[in-house]
């Protein structure tokens, strides 16, 4: 039952993650800028070893490709996790195998 507009938003997300993300600005964001200007950026620490630090997929030498890879993995992972949380919140089987599947097709 996923409506056309929602597909448009999903395709747009994939295009942004794959194609646009390597060309994003690397300038500091507002908070980083304030932390730099006021001398507390050095207080920032890293507590865990992130699998894909700073949106650069490790092991890929071309940085644009590494950013694309991080972007698409993150986008699809976010899609899956948020969908899963939605299902959990509504007590629905993630597989959609409840009667909702029939309703979905019925609404088309």
């Amino acid at each position: 039952m996923m409506r056309k507009e929602i597909w448009v938003l999903l395709i747009l997300s994939v295009v942004i993650a794959l194609v646009v993300s390597p060309f994003a600005s690397s300038l500091p964001d507002g908070l980083e800028r304030v932390a730099e200007d006021h001398g507390f950026i050095d207080k920032a620490t890293e507590l865990i070893n992130s699998p894909i630090p700073d949106y650069v997929f490790p092991g890929i030498t071309n940085e644009k490709v590494a950013t694309s890879a991080a972007g698409i993995i993150g986008t699809l992972l976010t899609l899956a996790v948020a969908y899963g949380i939605g299902c959990l919140l509504k007590g629905r089987d993630v597989q959609g195998s409840k009667t909702s599947q029939e309703q979905k097709h019925g609404n088309r």
């Binding site: 039952m1 996923m2 929602i6 938003l9 999903l10 747009l12 997300s13 994939v14 942004i16 993650a17 646009v20 993300s21 994003a24 600005s25 690397s26 300038l27 964001d29 949106y55 950013t67 972007g71 993150g74 986008t75 699809l76 976010t78 899609l79 899956a80 996790v81 948020a82 969908y83 949380i85 939605g86 299902c87 509504k90 629905r92």
Partner: peptide
Amino acid sequence: IPFMGVMAAFIFAAQMIN
């Protein structure tokens, strides 16, 4: 629920674009 998933995915992707 599918819209919620897609919205999260869109926000993740869009947040990468500084």
